[in-house]
Nucleic acid binder design. Structure first.
Lengths: 211, 211
DNA sequence: CCTTCATGTTTCCAATGTAAATTTTTCTGC
DNA sequence: GCAGAAAAATTTACATTGGAAACATGAAGG
């Protein structure tokens, strides 16, 4: 039923809308993406999505959820086979950047508090899974000096901040490079040289310190 | 003429619109900010701005420009009086964060490629001036190991990325803390411990390496 | 005084998201 | 099988938005 439908009922509208949304997102840009356009691409009326999503925001939330899944996958893909320590760290961060630069509009949507609902259970699960990849890498990292202040997940936040910040500055065109797009951007361009501890496990912050 | 106008001509509409926009921005949020609402607050028709700005995007660009001026001012305000080295670095970054968290909607607007025109000369000047503050601080920084790869302005990018990333993750609610807003967020929470060189001057990248 | 032109207004239009009422299909209990 | 309920889509309507065009107003300078 994913074909050109002749029947009144689409049969698989929910995932079809998400797919169409993912496509249109990068084609038209986040701010120009409209519910009506997504519905039109699937071939249904513009009010049809109401039966499956809670308005435009609900649909965008579902799109962002799929985005986080791919985001995590892209990081994992890079990490696989890499030995622990620096290689694995850089591979994960490279995956983070690769995804962001390949799907800039989706990436911006994913981190927009206004456009998608970060209380949504599915989004939370996907988002957290993605974060866990980075967090797993940050585990053995020794960025801090001993007397450094802050929470125990300070290192995770540092790592996340720097990769995320770099990704966004690149996406928004604040940072540009000579080679227009020839050589891919690498995390090595911004990551400081780390030291490593031996597998100490930190308590799980889940992005929030409200213990 | 900033008062309740009785005359047909406002007399000072351009700055009045920017001021009203800055106010409404934080009140209603970036995505809900409308040209009509801004015009209404000033007390003119919704097409009046057309005479002073190139559409909504032009107005938003002017608002963002003022944002960058205040952003730079907030950083400079913190830096003043601080001795060079670590204190000055942290003061500048604290200013960066303080501004972002006090004006989250404005901050998001400033770095939106889509919503404002980053080719605009005024915006470019203000944006660059703001960047220069951070860059000046990064001057004597020694974050890199000797064998670190990348461009000469690598350290600037590292610093900018980490502060910018932290600011955005906080704004978008991705990172939260126990004390709901009691203690201000500090750059010391994410900045690694730096070493310092003695005032070596780096070539000016101006955010782009297209030499 | 009278023309010129910048500045605002009015009116109109296309696009958007949402809601309500309606139609079509599928499912379910008998 | 089949009637009725529920699900899935459609049509219609509406308020808001940004923008374009034509017009109104008043200030400035001959």
């Amino acid at each position: 039923m994913t074909e050109n439908r002749k029947s009144y009922h689409h049969g698989d509208l929910k995932p079809a809308l998400i797919t169409a949304g993912l496509e249109l997102l990068e084609e038209t840009g986040l701010e120009n993406l409209s519910l009506r356009a997504i519905a039109a691409r699937v071939g249904v009326s513009h009010t049809a999505p109401k039966n499956h999503f809670d308005g435009l925001r609900g649909l965008l939330t579902a799109i962002a959820t799929e985005g986080f899944r791919r985001h995590a996958a892209e990081m994992r893909r890079g990490v696989e086979g890499e030995p622990p320590g620096k290689p694995r760290l850089h591979a994960a961060c490279d995956g983070y950047l690769r995804f962001a630069l390949a799907n800039p509009e989706l990436f911006r949507l994913m981190f927009s508090k206004t456009l998608c609902n970060h209380q949504d259970p599915d989004l939370m699960a996907a988002s957290r899974a993605s974060y866990e990849v980075l967090r797993g890498i940050a585990q053995g990292l020794d960025w801090d000096k001993a007397d450094a202040p802050g929470a125990p997940w300070r290192t995770e936040w540092m790592l996340w901040s720097i990769v995320h910040g770099y990704a966004l500055l690149l996406i928004e065109g604040q940072i540009a490079r000579a080679g227009d797009g020839a050589a891919p951007f690498k995390a090595s361009e911004i990551l400081p040289d780390f030291g490593y501890r031996d597998g100490t496990t930190e308590p799980d912050p889940l992005r929030s310190s409200s213990a």
